[in-house]
Structures are given as structure tokens and as C-alpha cells.
């Protein structure tokens, strides 16, 4: 119980820190001082560390992997998005990505806050070593698609605003934004593929069938197919830039539907109600 109480304190702190991160980035865009951007990045790193600790605390408190219900997956989804966005910020030296990613992280954490935080024991089907691999890869996949979505929004915004001055200096050129978004989609697709394959192996052991067209499975496939079309269109139709950005945005809507919509509207064996 102590660890669960700690997790709740950490969860609240994390939520506040992500809000602070977003405000600092807004301040950075207003005051245009590089120091503020560096502080915002540090706050986001601290938030991610505390977020990790919160997930670990819940895992210890629950005595199992904390990746089995809507609350746990939502907070892990936000963690994945925060992690992938940080990797991309540091790898591509693109600090302003944090300004656009943090509102999405806050939205997902806000969704988590509205879910039941009750710790329930695992049903027999979930007691498997595949749980960690399957859900952890889904978190990274969703996080990467989330970053691709944010990058696409930045691309479209840049295109619309015809960014000049500060924004032009701090947002990568359109061609580079397009490539970074593409790389994020690649990361997401790789991990989504692993999620589907590991889920199939697990389903074969637990339900006796590695693919049964359960709504969650079907929508994971839909998401996979959408991003596969995105990759093909980039190659043969030269769909780069704006059309690719719009496509990546649509893809993320499919991701969100797979995560929230399917559980809400299309219950199946993945609902665990």
C-alpha cells in the first residue's frame, strides 16, 4: 500500500511537471531565451524520471507488471510518448518538439487520471511472460506514432504559418521535419509489428488461436496497414511533405481508436472487463 501511495504522489507530481514543461516552452517562445528552453528540457527529463519511478512503484505495490488496465496503459502510453519525444529532441537537437509534445502527454495523462486506479489481481490469461514484451512494445509504438503525429502537426503549422524569425530558426526545415517524422513512423511500425507478433504468440498459448479477428487485433492490423500504405505512398507516389504529414495524422487517429475506441465501442477478449 505504501508504494501505491507513493505512486499517487509521484503521478500528481509528474502531471504538474509536464504542465510546467509546457508552460516553460510557451515562455521560451514568447521570451525567446535559450536558457528557458534548457530548463524546460531538464524539467521534462525530471518528469520522465519521476514518471518511471511512479510506474515502478505501482509495479511493486501491485506485485505485478503495471500494464494491464486503462489507467496503467494510459500512464505508460504518456511515458512512452515522453521517452520517444526526448530521444528525438536530443538526437535531432529539436527543443521545440517538447513544446508540441507536452500538451499531448498532458492530455494522455489527464485521460489516465480519469480512469479507475484500483489495483486488481491478474486474471489467468494475463499471467504470462509475454505481457511485459507485448505491452511494452505497444507503448513504444504508440509513443513513436505520437511523436510522428506531433511532428506532422508542426510540419503543417510551419507550412500554414510560413514560419519566420524565431520559429524558422528553431523548427527544422520542412525536408528535415518530414524525414524525422518518417523515422518516427518507422520506429512505431517496427514496434507495432513486434506488438502484433508477440501478441499472436501469446494468444496462441492463452486462447488456442494466434489470430481470431478480435477487435483489438483487427484494429492493430488496420493501424499497421495504414502506416504500410504511408510508406508505400512515400516511395511510389513521392508522398512526402504535406500529404505525408496529413497521412501520419490520420494514422495516429487510428492508434487512438485502437487504444481507447476499441475498448469503448468494440469489446472483445482484449477488454478484460
Amino acid at each position: 500500500m505504501v508504494f501505491l501511495a507513493i505512486e499517487q504522489y509521484l503521478f500528481t507530481s509528474v502531471l504538474i511537471l509536464y504542465v510546467v514543461t509546457m508552460l516553460l516552452y510557451v515562455l521560451y517562445m514568447i521570451l525567446k531565451k535559450e536558457t528557458i528552453s534548457r530548463i524546460a528540457l531538464i524539467v521534462q527529463i525530471v518528469a520522465l524520471v519521476l514518471h518511471t519511478l511512479a510506474i515502478i512503484s505501482r509495479g511493486i505495490g501491485a506485485g505485478r507488471l503495471p500494464l494491464t488496465n486503462q489507467y496503467e496503459f494510459a500512464t505508460a502510453f504518456a511515458w512512452g510518448l515522453s521517452l520517444v519525444s526526448l530521444i528525438f529532441i536530443l538526437k535531432f537537437r529539436f527543443h521545440l518538439l517538447g513544446a508540441f509534445a507536452s500538451p499531448v502527454i498532458i492530455l494522455i495523462i489527464g485521460y489516465a487520471a480519469m480512469q479507475s486506479k484500483e489495483v486488481k489481481e491478474l486474471m489467468p490469461a494475463l499471467k504470462s511472460g509475454w505481457l511485459g514484451l507485448h505491452v511494452a512494445s505497444a507503448i513504444i509504438a504508440y509513443g513513436a506514432f505520437g511523436v510522428a503525429f506531433v511532428l506532422s502537426l508542426i510540419f503543417l503549422l510551419r507550412d500554414k504559418m510560413k514560419a519566420k524569425g524565431f520559429l524558422d530558426r528553431h523548427i527544422p526545415p520542412a525536408a528535415k521535419l518530414d524525414v524525422i517524422s518518417y523515422r518516427s513512423v518507422c520506429l512505431g511500425l517496427l514496434f507495432l509489428s513486434f506488438t502484433i507478433v508477440s501478441g499472436a504468440i501469446w494468444a496462441e498459448q492463452a486462447w488456442g488461436s494466434y489470430w481470431s479477428w478480435d477487435p483489438k487485433e483487427t484494429w492493430s492490423l488496420v493501424t499497421w496497414l495504414i502506416y504500410a500504405v504511408y510508406l508505400h505512398l512515400r516511395i511510389f507516389a513521392k508522398w512526402k511533405g504535406k500529404p505525408a504529414a496529413i497521412f501520419a495524422t490520420v494514422g495516429f487517429i487510428a492508434v487512438i481508436f485502437t487504444y481507447i475506441g476499441v475498448n469503448t465501442f468494440l469489446p472483445g477478449v482484449h477488454s478484460y472487463k
Binding site: T218, W219, V222, L225, V229, H232, L266
Partner: peptide
Amino acid sequence: AVILLVILIISCVFGSF
């Protein structure tokens, strides 16, 4: 191939809804 993938997507949406 892209046309086939799009048809598959639409089929899956029908099959799930």
C-alpha cells in the same frame, strides 16, 4: 498493392464494426 491494402483496411473496419 496500395489499392489492395486500402481495400483490406476498409474490410477490417466493416468486420470490426
